[in-house]
Design a binder for these strands. Structure first.
Length: 113
DNA sequence: AAGGTGACTAACA
DNA sequence: ATGTTAGCCACCT
């Protein structure tokens, strides 16, 4: 009995809800954790139409760029990130420094040289 | 119900 | 270097 209400969306929301404050994840990364590495676009769709209570502001694109469709635009998104202690510069964040993986889900690349 | 859009990413010309 | 095409699947009309 799988009341799979689009498992994908449920997983995406679950992951986003776990992003710690001051950290960010990318759409492709979340999509990969949900089983579809190429479904980054879907994550974006869910972000737009999904639960607005989730910290979508911690979700950025792979370039560290902010979301165009975010309420308030990229500027609003930037302000929200700054409020969490994230340094936003020219609508971009240091994705290399702030990128976060859920504990136990890392693709074995952080501790490895 | 079917088609089109999309807060993305990657590959190709 | 930029522009286009393809792919993924959910949500909207």
């Amino acid at each position: 009995m799988e009341s799979v209400e689009s498992n994908f969306r449920v997983r995406v929301e679950a992951v986003v809800a776990q992003i710690p404050k001051g950290r960010v994840m990318t759409y492709g990364q979340i999509a990969a954790l949900c089983g579809s590495a190429r479904s980054a676009q879907i994550v974006g769709s869910i972000a737009h139409f999904g639960d607005p209570n989730l910290p979508w502001q911690r979700v950025v694109n792979k370039s560290g760029g902010l979301a165009a469709g975010y309420p308030g635009g990229r500027h609003g998104h930037a302000e929200h990130l700054r409020a969490e202690g994230v340094e936003v510069h020219d609508d971009h964040v240091d994705v290399h420094a702030l990128l976060w993986w859920p504990p136990g889900e890392e693709p074995a690349q952080q501790g490895l040289f």
